[in-house]
Simulated scan of single mutants.
Amino acid sequence: MEEQPGVQVRTLDARSLRGIAHPLRMRLLDALRFDGPATASQLAAKLGESSGATSYHLRQLAAHGFIKDAPEHGKGRERWWQAASQGLTFDDSLLNHSSPEVRGAAEMYLHEVAHTQARDLSTWLGDRTAWPEEWQRTWDMSSATLRLTPELAGELIGKMHALIDEYRGRVTDEAEGDSARVRLHTHAFPLTTE
């Protein structure tokens, strides 16, 4: 993920990668980033996990600086958590790190991101009929295969990200019309040909 104007983005390094490279931690962080502050019990119910597991993994995320307390939401002994940033940047050099543990965490992180993206699309496909007709007509699942050099692929990726950034912040109020959060996944990678 690249940095986004006006959005606080955290760059993953070898230490922080160890703190996030776990499927439940990644789901917890996404829930806090996209749905706002919550307690361990609320997140457990939402994600179908035990509150003990969510509490443990929330503490790990906090220890690595991914989340922080949200005291303005707390009542009594309830501990509320919120995301410390709204995005993550992955440095490809982590895949070639001298530590096998870091390389393994980097691989796991990327595979979990890919799994999450596939799950998002599958959820939409299963739930799309529950959405208004306008949304059922306004979605995309397309692919294109091009012959490119690494330089041209980098240029294309940069232009796709720039185009997406043009739409960031154009609708800021949840109550505005029939707005919804829209998830965009971009993938660009070379294909093995035999």
Rank of each mutant, 00 (worst) to 15 (best):
V113E: 12
D120L: 12
G87Y: 03
E112R: 05
S99L: 03
L32E: 04
Q117P: 00
A31S: 13
D92P: 14
W80L: 14
P132Q: 02
A63R: 15
E133S: 05
Y56Q: 13
A106W: 03
D91T: 06
F66V: 11
E134S: 08
G36D: 15
T116W: 08
A40I: 11
T116N: 10
E72F: 08
D92H: 15
A38K: 00
L47D: 00
L61Y: 12
Q117D: 06
A38S: 02
A45W: 09
D35F: 05
E101F: 02
Q60S: 06
A83F: 05
A105Y: 00
L43H: 01
A106F: 10
P132S: 04
L110S: 05
W80M: 13
S93A: 14
L61I: 03
G36C: 03
K46V: 07
L88K: 09
Q82H: 03
D69V: 08
V102D: 13
E112V: 04
Q86H: 07
H111Q: 15
G87T: 03
D35G: 05
P37T: 07
R33S: 14
K68Y: 04
E49S: 12
P37W: 06
I67V: 12
A83R: 11
Q42Y: 02
H111M: 10
G74E: 13
G76F: 01
T54Y: 11
Q117Y: 06
G76R: 12
S98C: 05
H111A: 14
A84G: 12
A38D: 02
G36N: 12
L110I: 07
S51P: 04
A118M: 11
Q86A: 15
A45L: 10
S93I: 14
T116F: 06
A44R: 13
K68A: 15
G52V: 14
A40W: 05
T39E: 02
P37I: 04
A62F: 08
L47A: 00
W135V: 01
T89M: 12
D35M: 03
M108A: 15
A84S: 13
E72C: 04
G36P: 10
V113W: 03
D120W: 11
G104T: 02
E101R: 15
D69K: 04
G87L: 08
